[in-house]
Design a protein around this nucleic acid. Structure first.
Lengths: 203, 203
DNA sequence: AACCATACAGACAGGTCTGTCTACTAGCAA
DNA sequence: TTGCTAGTAGACAGACCTGTCTGTATGGTT
């Protein structure tokens, strides 16, 4: 287990992936060459192609890492907002504000990648899948919050989320994240009140 | 003025620009080479470089064309919704639905281009400027609609708009556009009601 | 007729990108 | 010792990209 000094501190694959994560997010997958990733991660080219036979394989691994990180942050922010599903729906938007403040924030990695790679590519498919999973999660939360129409409410909230993320490509303005949270509260209240009123025995 | 048969039906510059418009929007500026634009527009390479000394000049001209088209569609949709500013704010979202249904719709050209080209580029600056102009227009409309806080309402509405556009990179779902319009109505009503109530002589 | 602006056709240089290939090194296990 | 695994170092082919350059044709103007 002991490294020999010149040996990598972590596995070559991990180093490649974490280097790619930074570079791909900052400049887009298409904006970073394999040579750059190889040089920056201190790995031989043959080693690179052993772990990731094609560059696309690395891009997909990168997107999986992003998916885990972002979806995880979303759920953590919701959980931190308490037990009430309505508060959780709004609280998820804290993840947006947190991401906004992070150094090097550059918008939604999925949308950026999908914008580069054309329709019909694996990258595109992976992005669609990611958005579908997030939408399903929000829809479930909206249902548990007692929304009159969970589908429409969830769709509106994810639009808001995507808008906040997309705007991040331009400039990480906290005002955008705050406006998103404010709007989310209004939409959640409006979407759940009618149902709550009709469910209540007495108006 | 009469063409000689082999002569171009329109000026070389126009042909280049309209070809670039299609190709750049479909594959992104970085995904289309100069050679492709030259070949598809039936123009000599020297002619191309005479009108657009660098490829970036063509990209910027493309973004200007997109800006005119999209901002124009936005204002037209708002105008079509009537004279009431509140209705106009909501009506602008019809432009999103219309764009969504158009063949080859692929999201917001500005966000896509900005995702490819890095921060600090002219493309990035042009995108920021475009979004700034749209935000200012929506803010003005929100003020005329009597919003309690026009800045926050406008920010929320543009987030919704950007979200709808960004989602278009993945799939042009009419459901997203409908949800955006629905959410816009709620936000506008919520943002203007308080002000309207306080402005009214009697509650 | 002479001249000039505009455009076409296409070769070319210099660079970057992906992916393959050869040759060498070190640790570990049978 | 022998062989396997995982890695380093770097040359190389082939494709593609931007931007320059030479040469030709055509129509209008003086």
């Amino acid at each position: 287990m002991a490294s020999t000094g010149t040996a990598p501190p972590a596995g070559a694959r991990d180093r490649i992936l974490s280097t790619a994560f930074q570079l791909f997010y900052a400049h887009g997958p298409r904006g970073v060459g394999v040579d750059t990733v190889v040089a920056r991660s201190g790995v031989a080219k043959a080693t690179f192609y052993k772990h990731f036979p094609r560059k696309d394989d690395l891009v997909l691994a990168y997107l999986d890492a992003v998916d885990q990180a972002w979806f995880g942050a979303l759920r953590a922010a919701a959980r931190a907002a308490g037990d009430n599903p309505r508060d959780q729906l709004v609280g998820a938007f804290d993840a947006l504000a947190t991401a906004c403040r992070r150094e090097g924030y550059h918008g939604c990695a999925f949308i950026n990648a999908a914008a580069e790679c054309g329709t019909g590519t694996e990258v595109h498919a992976r992005t669609v899948e990611h958005k579908r999973v997030v939408l399903a999660w929000v829809t479930d939360l909206a249902r548990r919050a007692g929304a009159a129409d969970p589908d429409v409410l969830a769709r509106a909230l994810t639009l808001l989320l995507d808008g906040g993320l997309a705007a991040g490509v331009l400039d990480a303005e906290p005002a955008a994240a705050e406006a998103a949270r404010y709007a989310a509260r209004i939409l959640v209240d409006a979407g759940c009140e009618a149902a709550a009123a009709s469910h209540r025995p007495a108006g």
